[in-house]
Design a protein around this nucleic acid. Structure first.
Lengths: 338, 338
DNA sequence: CTGAAAGCGCTTACAG
DNA sequence: CTGAAAGCGCTTACAG
C-alpha cells in the first residue's frame, strides 16, 4: 500500500493536520516539527495524492486543449506554446483531437463539465465544438484564432483581414496585378476571413478578382496542388499567388517547378503562418508570420486568469503579424502579352 | 453552486446510494427509480464530479505521454495514434514535452507518482527520464522505440538494425558500393542502432565504410544539410546515402539539388520513418516505413493492460517495418572514375 | 431493490 | 504552533 498522510503523521508523532501543513505550508509549522515530518515522509516514500488534494481544494490545475490535429506544424507549435506557459503557471495539459469527430468532441467537453479540468482552450478548425458547449460565460473557455462561441467567451487571435492585406500589398508593390488566392478550409473562420480579406484588399487597390482567381486549397497538400494546376491552365494565369497557408504555398510551388516554371521569375508566392517548411522551401517562401508561440502563451495566461476569476479580462485579444519577405516574390515581368 | 449527487437524490426522493447506482449502474435499480433519478439529474443540470469518483475508485482513467517534442511529424503522429486508441479504451491523455529540460521531466514524472495519472508512456529522445523514474516494475510505464529503463519495463519498438539492413541492401541491390550514412541524434538509442546497423549491414556485404562516410545529422535539418555538404566535398563522394530520418534525407536532397546534382541519377537517397514530407519531396523519397500509428496503438493497449494488472504481458514488442521503394533511388552509374 | 454508513486522502477553519 | 473535526463528492460492501 502506498503510504498516506496519516502514515506520515503517525511516524512523525504528530496529527495529520500538522503533517499536511509541514509538507504543503511549511511556514505554519515549527522547525523541529517540519523536520520530523519531512524525515518521516522520506523514510516511508510518501507521495501526496493529488486527486484527493484536488477534491478538497476544488481545482485540478489541469487545462484541456482541443485542436483539430497536430499534423499541421502550426497547430503543433501552438500546442507546445500552450504547454510551455501552462507548465510555468503550474498547470498540466490534457489534449483532445477534434478532427476525429463529434463523439470525441462531446466526450472531451465533458472533461470540463465533469470537473476533470479547470478550463478549456479551443483551437477550432471548423469542427462543431459549439454544439457541445453552449455559450456559458461562466465556464473558463478561451478560443484560439477562430471564434466559435459568442462573446463574452474570449478569443485570442490575429487579424486575418490584415494578413491578406499585407500579402496583397506586398505583391502589388512589386507590380503584380494578376494575383490569385488559394484558400484554406472555409469551414474555419480564419480561412474565410483571409479569403474575404484578399478580395477586399484587391478591391482597395483597384485590382480585378475574377472568380477563377480564387481556388479552394482546403489546407490540404493535394487540393492545393490541384488548385495551382487550375490556375496555370487559365487562359490568363496569375503572376502571383497568395496562399492562406505555407503548406499550400509549398504544394503550389512544387506544381510550378514540375511544370518548369521558375520561382519567383515566372510566378511569385506568398504564404501565411511561417511554418518550419517555409525556410526550407526552395526558394525560401515569403510569408506573413503568425506568432504561434505568443498566441499560445497569451491564451494560456488568459485562461488561467479566468480560472482564478479575475475581472475585466480582454474578450478579444489581437496579436500583431509580420511580413517576412524572402525569396519567393519578385517584381512582375512586364507583360509582352497578347 | 454545482448540484451534487445528494441534490439529485433529494430531488428524486431517494438516497444518494440509489442515485449513484441509477446513474452509473442502472441495472441495479428499479425502472421507475431510474427514471426519477435521471429526470432529477437533468432538471438540475447535474454533472458527475470525476475527481471525487477517481478518489473513490482509485483510478483516473488518464494516461501521461512524454515526448521530446512534436515538431517532428513522426512524434506528432505517434501521439495522435496513442490518443486515438486511449480514447477508445476510455482514457484521456495528458502530454509532457521532455526536450524542455530536466526540471520538466521530473515534474511530469510526479504526475504518475502522485496519482494524477494511471500510467505513463515514454517516447524518449535521449532525454534523461531514467533519472527520475527508477526501474520500478510495479508502476505502469511503457517505453516507445527507445529502451531507457531495464526490463521488465516493457518497450514497443521496431528493429532498428533491420531498418538499416533493409536500406543498405536496397541500395546495394541497385549496384551501389559507396554508401554513406547521415545519422540521427546519437543520444537516442534508435539513432545509435541505425548507425551500428548500417555499419553491420555494409560489413555483411563486404562494402567498405570509411569514417567519413558516417556523418552526424542529429535529426536536425541544418545539421543534415551540413553533413551532406561534407559528403559531397569528399575526394571520393558516395553514390548513395542512407538517412536515419526522412527529414534529414529531404535536407540532404536539397543540398544536392542546389549543387545541380540530379536525384536519383547522380545521388540516390533512402530515408526512414515515412513522414508526410517524403511523398511530397521531389523526387518522392524512398524510405523504410516505421508504423507510427500501430506503434502508438500497441503501446497504449499494453499500458492499459498493465494498469489493469494483467499478467504475462510482453516485455519487448517488435513491430515490422517495410521498405517503400519510390523515386529517389536508381541503379548506380557505372563509374568512369579515375 | 434500496438505504445508512464508511471511506477514498487530503485541507482548513476553529479552538486551544 | 498544533490538534480534533468537518467535509470535498463520490462508490460500495453490508443489511434489510
Amino acid at each position: 500500500m502506498r503510504p498516506t498522510l496519516s502514515d506520515v503523521a503517525r511516524l512523525a508523532g504528530v496529527s495529520v493536520a500538522t503533517a499536511s501543513r509541514a509538507l504543503s505550508n511549511p511556514d505554519l509549522v515549527a522547525d523541529g516539527t517540519r523536520r520530523a515530518v519531512r524525515d518521516a515522509a522520506n523514510s516511508c516514500g510518501y507521495r501526496i495524492n493529488l486527486v484527493a488534494r484536488s477534491l478538497r481544494i476544488q481545482r485540478t490545475d489541469t487545462l484541456l486543449v482541443l485542436t483539430p490535429d497536430i499534423e499541421n506544424p502550426f497547430c503543433a507549435n501552438l500546442l507546445q506554446g500552450i504547454e510551455d506557459t501552462a507548465f510555468d503557471m503550474g498547470y498540466s495539459v490534457m489534449v483532445g483531437f477534434t478532427a476525429k469527430g463529434d463523439r470525441r468532441c462531446e466526450s472531451y467537453a465533458e472533461l470540463l463539465s465533469n470537473g476533470r479540468v479547470d478550463g478549456m482552450l479551443v483551437l477550432d478548425g471548423g469542427t462543431g465544438m459549439s454544439r457541445f458547449t453552449g455559450p456559458k460565460p461562466e465556464v473558463p473557455v478561451v478560443q484560439l484564432l477562430d471564434r466559435v462561441y459568442e462573446p463574452p467567451v474570449p478569443v485570442v487571435r490575429v487579424d486575418d483581414g490584415a494578413i491578406a492585406d499585407l500579402a496583397v500589398r506586398h505583391l502589388s508593390g512589386l507590380g503584380h496585378r494578376r494575383i490569385a488566392h488559394i484558400a484554406g478550409p472555409l469551414v474555419a473562420q480564419h480561412a474565410l476571413e483571409r479569403r474575404d480579406g484578399f478580395i477586399a484588399a484587391m478591391g482597395r487597390l483597384g485590382l480585378p478578382v475574377p472568380d477563377t482567381y480564387i481556388q479552394a486549397g482546403e489546407g490540404q497538400w493535394d487540393q492545393a496542388s490541384g488548385a495551382m494546376e487550375l490556375l496555370l491552365n487559365l487562359p490568363e494565369p496569375p503572376t502571383a499567388v497568395y496562399c492562406a497557408d505555407d503548406m499550400m504555398a509549398c504544394a503550389a510551388m512544387d506544381v510550378c517547378r514540375a511544370r518548369g516554371l521558375r520561382i519567383p521569375e515566372d510566378m511569385s508566392f506568398i504564404g501565411t503562418n511561417d511554418m518550419p517548411e517555409s525556410q526550407r522551401a526552395f526558394p525560401q517562401l515569403s510569408t506573413v508570420r503568425v506568432p504561434d508561440a505568443s498566441l499560445g502563451a497569451k491564451a494560456a495566461e488568459l485562461l488561467v486568469a479566468m480560472i482564478r476569476s479575475q475581472q475585466g479580462l480582454a474578450t478579444d485579444t489581437v496579436l500583431p503579424v509580420e511580413l517576412l519577405a524572402r525569396a519567393s516574390c519578385s517584381p512582375v515581368r512586364t507583360a509582352v502579352a497578347a
